[in-house]
């Protein structure tokens, strides 16, 4: 390694005459080739400090204070966190988060797997890749829609008066099933979950289809020769083969579910009566409507800790899976 580094250094000295922008300094020739690359990192690091690190530290700091957003924050230690532990709204918001994980991670992953497998090895074989492309596009479409727009569409469809869903139920003779889908505290969370499944489904589907593309077709042919039916092949070949994709999708979707904000803002504003409140919306209203900045910061800090913990576990599992795979190969 040092040998190549030194050779690189010699070359960069020659290059200096040509390249105006090579800022490698004349000192410490051994380290120069690597360190001058660090200059390319400079704008990124400065921007990250200003936009992410400093605000994040400020937010964490604010969570230990009593602050209305004006004047000097007053140090209050762990008071905000202690208050959180006794706050029923806080616990309710995280309970709703679990429901969102079901709607945005578990259900889309399960349904996406079946759909992807069906599209990939049934539709493609029997009806051609054109049909696959069109169907996939339909499933993916909601993913490119701004969540605010999806919210407008669905809150109108689910409206109690003149809403399409209620009208449809009436038209097919199920008028007694009509509901105030977003306004009934017992139903609102389920309605939001339904919308989120619709929004999210396309993402796992597309990832899984790409994953299936790299599975060796001979595996399927061999299984088919052995007389394995579609479900058995799905269970014993498809699932194990695209396990890395499943991990990644579950991780990403779970994190997205914990962060969900726009849908709740547009569909229900956390209501009725807090029935659909989630941590991000809870911290938003605490920041900007109640202006209890310290308390809002504590909520978002707890959310951050949970998300980062999940992310670290996920990355660890992923690298371990990759290592195991490489171990098998060598």
């Amino acid at each position: 390694m040092t040998v190549t580094a030194e050779r690189g250094g010699g070359r960069s000295r020659g290059a200096r005459a040509v390249g105006k922008h090579d800022h490698s300094g004349p000192r410490r020739p051994r380290n120069r080739p690597r360190d001058s690359y660090a200059l390319f990192l400079l704008p990124g690091v400065l921007a990250f400090l200003a936009v992410i690190v400093v605000p994040f530290l400020m937010n964490t700091g604010a969570s230990f204070t009593e602050w209305q957003g004006v004047g000097t924050p007053e140090w209050s230690g762990l008071a905000n966190y202690r208050e959180l532990m006794d706050d029923a709204d806080f616990w309710a918001s995280f309970r709703h988060s679990l429901f969102m994980v079901v709607a945005m991670a578990l259900v889309p992953t399960a349904v996406g797997l079946v759909l992807a497998a069906a599209l990939f090895d049934y539709i493609d074989k029997h009806h051609g890749s054109k049909a696959v492309a069109v169907l996939r596009a339909c499933f993916y479409l909601p993913q490119v829609l701004p969540i605010a727009v999806a919210g407008i569409v669905w809150s109108w469809i689910l409206a109690p008066e003149n809403g399409s869903l209620n009208e449809l139920l009436d038209a097919v003779g199920l008028g007694s099933w009509q509901q105030d889908w977003l306004g009934d505290p017992d139903l609102a969370l389920w309605s939001v979950m339904g919308v989120m499944v619709w929004v999210q489904l396309g993402f796992p589907l597309v990832v899984f289809m790409a994953g299936l593309g790299r599975v060796d077709p001979q595996l399927y042919e061999a299984a088919e020769l052995d007389g394995a039916g579609w479900w058995r092949r799905f269970w014993h070949i498809t699932l194990p083969q695209i396990r890395p994709e499943i991990y990644v999708v579950l991780l990403w979707c779970t994190i997205a579910a914990l962060k969900v904000f726009g849908a709740v803002y547009v569909l229900t504003k956390g209501g009725p009566g807090g029935a659909t409140n989630v941590p991000s919306y809870f911290s938003f209203t605490t920041f900007f409507e109640k202006t209890q900045v310290g308390y809002g910061a504590a909520i978002s800090t707890v959310l951050t800790i949970i998300i980062l913990a999940l992310a670290l576990i996920g990355l660890k599992l992923q690298t371990r899976a990759e290592d195991a795979e490489e171990g098998l190969r060598t």
Partner: peptide
């Protein structure tokens, strides 16, 4: 460039990407 400490720098960027915007929004 394979700068020194690149694993840490990369991990930092990944975590920054995962960070919920709720934890940045008020200070920003």
């Amino acid at each position: 460039g394979r700068v020194r400490g690149r694993t840490w720098v990369l991990a930092f960027f990944v975590l920054a990407n995962m960070l919920p915007q709720e934890a940045l929004v008020y200070p920003v």
